[in-house]
Write a protein that binds this DNA or RNA. Structure first.
Ligand code: MN
Ligand code: MN
Ligand code: ZN
Ligand code: ZN
Lengths: 131, 131
DNA sequence: TCTACTATCGATAACGAATCTCATTACCGA
DNA sequence: TCGGTAATGAGATTCGTTATCGATAGTAGA
C-alpha cells in the first residue's frame, strides 16, 4: 500500500514553492537549508512518483532532469526563460492535432510528443540590455 | 585552423551508416568492432562538432545524447519509432510559426524549441500484434 | 491501543554518460 | 621538409542518478 510520509509532503510543498523548473539536487538543498533532514534519494524518489502521478512535469535540460508542480490532469507544454527559469504553461490544440496527424500519416501509432519552447523573458532581456 | 583527420571522417561515415539516432558510445563500439582504433573522447568531440556545423541533429533520450546524420541546413524535426529507432524527418511551418508567436505573445525573445514525436512504426506495431 | 508487517527512508556505494588532463601524434601552411 | 599547434586517446575525473540494505515508521488488523 502507498504510505503517507512527511518526506513526500515536504517535497510536494517545496516543489510548489518554486515558480520554474528545479532539479532534485536544488530541491534537496532548499529543504536542507530550511532545516529538513530529508535524504537526497528520497527527494529523487518523491519527484519520480509525483511525475508518474501527474502532479509534476519534468524535462531534460543540460543533462539533468528538472521538475515543476503543474496544473494536474491538464496536458500542456512550457515556455521557459533559459536565464531565470520563469515558466509559462501553454496549451495548443493545433500542435496536439498536428502531432497526432503527422504520426498517423506515417503509419505510426501510440504517438507521444515532446514540445518545449525556450527563450529570454522580458525582464531578462531588459536586464541584459542594461548591462 | 580546422584539420581533417581520418577520425572525423570515420565518425561521419559511421553516423551516416545508421538509419536512426545513435549514442556516442554505440557509435564508438561499432567503429571499434569494425577494426578502428578511434578513441571514445574523439567520437564525442566529432559528434559535438558535427552537431554545431549542422551536419547532425541530436536529441536527449533517457539521460543520454543521441545523434543522427540529417539533411544539412534544413531546420526540421523527427518522428521516431521508440521500438526500432526508425526516424522520419518532418517539417511543419505551422509549428515553427506557432512557437515564435507564442514566445512573442508572452514577451519572450530569442525563442528556440524542442519538438519531437515518438511512436510505434507500422512494422513494429504489426510485429507486436503478431506475438 | 498494541502488534506485526513491510513500505519507505537515508547514508553511502555504485553506476554511467560526459568531460578533462596532458603527453603524444600528425595535419598543413610556409 | 619542417615547425607550430590542432587533434588525439588512455585514463582520471566529474556529476547526476540509481542501487544497496539495515534502520525506521506508517498502517491494517486484532
Ligand atoms: Mn502536447
Ligand atoms: Mn522547428
Ligand atoms: Zn527570465
Ligand atoms: Zn519501429
Amino acid at each position: 500500500m502507498k504510505r503517507n510520509t512527511w518526506q513526500r509532503e515536504a517535497v510536494r510543498e517545496a516543489l510548489g514553492g518554486n515558480d520554474g523548473f528545479v532539479s532534485a539536487q536544488t530541491l534537496h538543498s532548499e529543504l536542507r537549508d530550511a532545516g529538513s533532514p530529508i535524504g537526497l534519494a528520497t527527494v529523487y524518489r518523491a519527484l519520480a512518483d509525483l511525475a508518474v502521478e501527474g502532479e509534476a512535469d519534468s524535462l531534460q535540460a543540460e543533462g539533468e532532469s528538472l521538475y515543476r508542480a503543474c496544473t494536474p490532469g491538464q496536458h500542456h507544454h512550457h515556455l521557459i526563460c533559459r536565464n531565470c527559469g520563469l515558466t509559462v504553461e501553454i496549451e495548443a490544440d493545433a500542435v496536439e492535432q498536428w502531432a497526432q496527424a503527422t504520426a498517423a500519416a506515417h503509419g505510426f501509432s501510440q504517438a507521444t510528443h515532446v514540445v518545449d519552447v525556450f527563450g529570454l523573458c522580458a525582464a531578462c532581456r531588459l536586464a541584459a540590455q542594461g548591462s
